[in-house]
Amino acid sequence: MAKAKTPGGRRPGSPQPAPAATVAAEPPAAKARISPMQFASQVRAEGRKIVWPSRKETWITSVMVFIMVALAAAFFWIVDTILSFLSQLVLGLGA
């Protein structure tokens, strides 16, 4: 027979959590519209903050990506070969 649940799913004698304070939701503030010139100026300012990788960093990253792709390809080829062998073994048992 299943036990009856206590109200709220709590065990008797366990401490009750404090009620959460309610916070009145404020309506979202309307964003001020900016002129196209200000927008272009902000875009240029953000563009100046970009740090481009050096040629060496780009080369190292590209080589690492190539190595990871080769490892992933080898892994999936091995798994595919094993699964193919096992499926042929299982399907060949019925013949």
Rank of each mutant, 00 (worst) to 15 (best):
V90K: 06
T58L: 04
I67F: 12
A73D: 01
Q42T: 07
A70Y: 07
F39I: 05
M64L: 09
P28A: 01
M64R: 08
W52Q: 12
R55W: 15
S54Y: 02
E57T: 05
P12L: 03
A73M: 11
M37R: 02
R33K: 10
K49R: 13
T58V: 06
A32W: 12
G13N: 06
R33T: 13
S87H: 11
P28N: 03
P53H: 10
V79M: 07
R48S: 05
P28I: 02
L86E: 15
A24L: 12
F66A: 14
E26V: 01
S87P: 01
A21K: 04
Q42S: 05
E46R: 02
R55N: 13
Q16R: 08
G8W: 13
G8M: 05
P19V: 04
I82E: 01
P27C: 01
R10V: 00
P27W: 07
P27F: 04
A29N: 02
T61F: 11
P53A: 12
V69T: 13
M68V: 13
M1P: 08
A40P: 04
V69E: 13
Q38A: 11
G47A: 06
P36Q: 05
A18L: 09
I82A: 11
G94E: 15
M68F: 14
P27Y: 08
S87V: 09
S35D: 11
V51W: 06
R11Y: 00
V23P: 01
P19C: 00
G8R: 06
L93W: 13
V65I: 13
F39K: 02
T61C: 10
F66D: 15
S41W: 07
K49A: 07
G9T: 00
K3W: 15
G9A: 02
L89W: 15
S14I: 02
R48Q: 13
V23M: 06
E46C: 01
G94A: 09
K3Y: 15
M68N: 14
A73W: 10
Q38G: 03
L89S: 10
M68Q: 15
G47H: 11
G92C: 03
A20P: 03
A73K: 00
I82M: 11
P12Q: 03
W59G: 04
R11E: 00
S62Q: 12
T58N: 04
M37V: 08
V79K: 09
S54H: 00
S41K: 04
S87E: 14
T81Y: 09
V23A: 04
R48V: 01
V51D: 10
A24W: 14
A70E: 10
A30D: 14
A32D: 15
E46M: 06
F39V: 05
S14Y: 02
L86T: 13
S54V: 00
A30K: 08
A2E: 15
Q42V: 05
P53C: 09
A32G: 10
